[in-house]
Amino acid sequence: MLKDFQKLGRDLFLSGLNSSHSGNLSVRYGDRIVITRRGSMLGHLEERDLIETGLAKNDSKIILASTEIGVHRAIYKGTSALAVVHAHPVHAIALSLLEDQIIPVDSEGAYLLHKIPVIGAEHTIGSQELEKSLPGLLSKYKIVVVRGHGSFAVGQMLEEAYQWTSSLEQVCRIICLTRTLQGEIKDQRSAKFKDW
């Protein structure tokens, strides 16, 4: 398990989806959850950085767990996910400040993600508000962006949730680039996903 966390944590960092100490990963094992340590560096994870605690029940390990443990737990309780990736992809965050949803304009993004909801909350870090709102959305969508904060993606394994995160950022980069070109988009096929 450590190798999976290390591989994906490193990739998330190297591809700019997280800054040095941001983001967190978790997997669910029955009624247990393994989550990255609060303040750990995803690009350099060690054994001590993986914290196992209860899915519903706290124990002493809770004091080492990521600040987003409450959101991860809520996602597991409200969805069939077995892995969660939380990242801070910069283009996605930038777009989230302008949009209520992100509609991919590229074929692969549209094929994989269709539409990415953007939600706002007064408190976006360790947020009890997000604990309530995210599970419902993540049972319908693969990934959701919290306005101005970052993305939460779900999967049956870490790699899957990582893929949605990577795809999201790719989608958002293309949208941002397209907007800077200021031309008319010739292919509007992806617009159909607006009501997805």
Partner: peptide, 24 residues
């Protein structure tokens, strides 16, 4: 807000008090 967001001050200490440190 930070106190509520931090698992030490929002979960560990309120639920177990300082003896949360025993196992650790």
């Amino acid at each position: 807000k930070w106190i509520k967001a931090n698992p030490i001050t929002s979960k560990g200490l309120p639920e177990f008090g300082t003896p949360v440190l025993v196992n650790l």
